[in-house]
Design a binder for these strands. Structure first.
Lengths: 185, 185
DNA sequence: CCCTTAACTTGTCAGTGACAAGATTGCGCG
DNA sequence: CGCGCAATCTTGTCACTGACAAGTTAAGGG
């Protein structure tokens, strides 16, 4: 007989959600299935997330936080924009479930402060990497930032949706693609 | 009393789906709601699409066909890669519902031949635009193609998910971003 | 030791996707 | 002209889902 109190239901449900989404995509996960996986009654998770959207919002926030950490780490280590882009792509591939939920605002509670803050942090980390590029290469800095984000985000999305040939290594191809944007810095 | 046979249910349901997805996102559309909008019983649409996934697959195929047409048209008119990219973005913004479904393979019947063929056609149109670029600019042609697709797809996705500032004009900003990839050709 | 409150369960309701079986209609073919 | 067949649509049903309401259990501060 399992104990009445799970102990760390919130974390367990989030982990189960990652598994379920990785297997079947975010569209087909159900709160009830997650509850079953974790071994808890069908309304258990509701207490922690309020909503299905609440669950996915929490997942998205966690994802942005993880991304921000990863970006800041490679920024501290290399200072290279290309490697920052590779980190972005690596995150998207390795944390596919998080990544898919992060950019699906129709599944979120748009006003969630934790989500907004985490998103902000990740955006700043990415923008900081573009700052490091010389002025002559980037032209307008804001446009350069949008271009940088676009190319790595697009690559990650296309890779994850199976639109790029799978015989390449994602990171290696991403490195060559990112290098095409701003010379090879 | 409406007639027993609708006449063009397939087209009507697809159109209703576009409206519904534009309003509420692809996650919350229900076959039953579409049936209601069109004025037909809840199982009517099933006959034409078999599945919910079948409906979305048909929508995606229609989207790829429209995109291929648009790309081929501007390719015939300008031959400029930048304008091809702008066309890609314009399509994504103007046909948001189609675009969202097109790149969500977890909602499709992956083996649908019509979808594969339409996707093929759009891919070829895009690749053709990159061919036109001089060899010295592109380096490896395959990598250049991936980079081109990535940057316009990423921009379109970020714009549609509300991650880019809305005070810009999408097409104008997209033009500047695309121009950053291969000089300004 | 109590009692407040967080954590979880049980029960229920409307809405959904899928399927089966029946009703209606248009159309080809004799 | 009319008969029958197949496509189109309807009605009925089932298991599953998200949301909510109300009850149960346990933990921890006073």
């Amino acid at each position: 007989m399992p104990p009445y109190h799970h102990g760390d239901l919130r974390r367990a449900v989030l982990a189960a959600a990652v598994d379920a989404i990785t297997e079947h995509g975010p569209a087909q996960v159900s709160l009830r299935d997650l509850a079953r996986r974790v071994g808890v009654s069908h309304a258990g998770p509701v207490h922690h997330f309020k909503d299905k959207a609440g669950l996915l919002t929490a997942l998205a926030a966690e994802g942005f936080a993880l991304l921000a950490d990863a970006l800041n780490e490679t920024r501290a280590q290399t200072g290279s924009f290309v490697e920052l882009g590779v980190t972005y792509v690596r995150f998207a591939v390795r944390h596919r479930a998080h990544f898919e939920v992060m950019f699906r605002p129709d599944l979120h509670h748009a006003d969630d402060p934790a989500l907004a803050e985490a998103r902000e942090r990740a955006g700043a980390a990415l923008a900081g990497g573009v700052e490091a590029l010389g002025e002559q290469k980037t032209g307008d800095r804001r446009t350069a930032g949008v271009a940088a984000w676009s190319i790595v985000h697009g690559f990650a999305t296309l890779w994850n949706t199976g639109n790029l040939a799978r015989d390449d290594d994602a990171e290696e191809l991403a490195r060559r693609v990112a290098a095409m944007l701003f010379g090879d810095d």
